[in-house]
Amino acid sequence: MRTLTPALRGDVITGIAVTLVGAVYYIATFWIQETKNIVTPRTFPAIVGIALIVLGLFLIGQAVYRSRKLAEVVPAGAASASSGASGVASGSGAADSGVEDEPAGVVLDAPEEPKSKQVVLQFALFFIYLGILIPVGFLLSTAAFLMTMTSIYAPHRWIRNLIFSVLFSVIIYVAFVYGLAVYLPVGILG
């Protein structure tokens, strides 16, 4: 097995850390006292712990998968480079044109580094959201927050952003209020 690139090694280490945190978090839920309700105080922390475990394992699996894909590409590239060298020796057309064969394969582009102003703006928007959550209410403040955040990344798709923001807010509100019997701030709508 080939060694992992530094980026993939970082993903594996992060995945292991997230999995361990999720496991510890889930195990800690067993010390929470049970109640007779359907949804106990242990329910939400257990869901979070299980989600962290699943996401950590997914991150590890994705890094291993990408490592294997890169390992498949490198031998194919080495083989085409050696065949290109034999083609040069035999006087092929590639040698005459001065163009070398590039190895075929998958090119993984690194994501762009976040712009510091954009990160500061997102944190500021999050703290504004926290400040208006109770007085304005969950539905309106969450829809406005999500609309603003999605518009940062795709400003030209404002209709999609609006539909997503409203639907997500309503679905979460209904799930918490009617499914889990957890009341969220109503704010000015109440």
Results as ranks from 00 to 15, higher is better:
residue 4 L to D: 07
residue 9 R to K: 14
residue 9 R to G: 03
residue 11 D to N: 07
residue 11 D to R: 14
residue 15 G to S: 03
residue 15 G to W: 02
residue 15 G to H: 02
residue 16 I to Y: 11
residue 17 A to I: 09
residue 17 A to G: 04
residue 20 L to M: 12
residue 20 L to F: 10
residue 21 V to Q: 06
residue 21 V to S: 09
residue 21 V to P: 01
residue 21 V to Y: 12
residue 22 G to M: 05
residue 23 A to E: 06
residue 24 V to P: 00
residue 24 V to Y: 08
residue 26 Y to T: 09
residue 26 Y to P: 00
residue 28 A to M: 14
residue 29 T to Q: 12
residue 29 T to E: 05
residue 30 F to W: 14
residue 31 W to A: 06
residue 31 W to H: 06
residue 31 W to L: 02
residue 31 W to I: 00
residue 31 W to D: 05
residue 32 I to L: 12
residue 32 I to R: 07
residue 32 I to P: 00
residue 33 Q to K: 08
residue 33 Q to P: 01
residue 34 E to G: 05
residue 35 T to P: 06
residue 36 K to I: 04
residue 36 K to D: 08
residue 37 N to P: 03
residue 37 N to W: 13
residue 38 I to N: 09
residue 38 I to F: 14
residue 39 V to R: 05
residue 40 T to E: 10
residue 40 T to I: 01
residue 40 T to L: 01
residue 42 R to T: 03
residue 42 R to P: 00
residue 43 T to D: 11
residue 44 F to G: 00
residue 44 F to N: 00
residue 44 F to L: 14
residue 46 A to E: 06
residue 46 A to C: 02
residue 46 A to S: 10
residue 48 V to M: 12
residue 48 V to G: 03
residue 48 V to Y: 14
residue 48 V to F: 14
residue 48 V to R: 09
residue 49 G to E: 04
residue 50 I to Q: 14
residue 51 A to C: 10
residue 52 L to V: 04
residue 52 L to K: 03
residue 53 I to Y: 08
residue 54 V to K: 03
residue 57 L to D: 03
residue 58 F to Q: 12
residue 61 G to L: 07
residue 62 Q to N: 09
residue 64 V to P: 00
residue 64 V to S: 06
residue 64 V to Y: 13
residue 66 R to P: 01
residue 67 S to C: 02
residue 67 S to P: 00
residue 68 R to E: 13
residue 68 R to S: 07
residue 69 K to M: 11
residue 69 K to C: 05
residue 69 K to W: 07
residue 70 L to V: 01
residue 71 A to V: 04
residue 71 A to W: 04
residue 71 A to D: 11
residue 72 E to Y: 13
residue 73 V to S: 07
residue 73 V to T: 12
residue 73 V to G: 02
residue 74 V to N: 05
residue 74 V to T: 07
residue 74 V to C: 01
residue 75 P to M: 11
residue 75 P to Y: 08
residue 76 A to D: 03
residue 76 A to L: 12
residue 76 A to M: 04
residue 77 G to W: 13
residue 77 G to C: 05
residue 77 G to S: 03
residue 78 A to P: 00
residue 79 A to N: 10
residue 80 S to A: 09
residue 80 S to W: 02
residue 80 S to V: 07
residue 81 A to G: 01
residue 81 A to R: 15
residue 82 S to K: 12
residue 82 S to L: 11
residue 83 S to G: 01
residue 83 S to H: 13
residue 85 A to E: 14
residue 86 S to D: 15
residue 87 G to Q: 09
residue 88 V to R: 15
residue 88 V to M: 15
residue 90 S to Q: 04
residue 93 G to F: 15
residue 94 A to W: 14
residue 96 D to V: 05
residue 96 D to G: 05
residue 98 G to H: 07
residue 98 G to I: 07
residue 98 G to C: 04
residue 98 G to L: 11
residue 99 V to T: 13
residue 99 V to L: 15
residue 100 E to M: 11
residue 102 E to F: 12
residue 103 P to S: 12
residue 104 A to T: 10
residue 105 G to K: 09
residue 106 V to G: 00
residue 107 V to D: 08
residue 107 V to K: 14
residue 108 L to F: 15
